[in-house]
């Protein structure tokens, strides 16, 4: 049971208030029509599925309804960082100290 800090509410809340929305930073192609089927398939379905530090999107569904990003270790489930949409993570696998 994760305890998640909502950066919009400024509080730790229980996991049950949130919905996980998968890998973060997947940008919708600006010009979808110029994508090949393969590129569109990559955008739709293919994921890093990282074992270790994973940047992921969550929404405070039963709270403020705002989306935000989490950097979480998918093995230890430790949350290393919470940051806003539009920001980049400061904790990454290259820079992580476990």
């Amino acid at each position: 049971m994760l305890s998640i800090y909502c950066p919009h509410c400024g509080e730790h809340r229980e996991e049950e208030e949130f919905h996980p929305k998968g890998q973060a930073h997947i940008v919708r192609p600006l010009d979808p029509e110029s994508c090949s089927d393969k590129e569109w398939g990559q955008y739709l379905y293919f994921r890093k599925n990282t074992r270790g530090l994973h940047h992921e999107l969550w929404v405070h569904a039963a709270g403020c309804r705002k989306f935000f990003n989490i950097t979480r270790d998918t093995v230890s489930y430790e949350i290393r960082e919470v940051y806003l949409i539009g920001e980049q993570p400061s904790v990454t696998s290259d820079r992580a100290q476990s």
Binding site: M1, E15, E16, P20, G22, T74, S76
Partner: peptide
Amino acid sequence: GYNGYGQRGSYG
């Protein structure tokens, strides 16, 4: 709902 390799999930 979240990705996890920990061989454990949430109590809820």
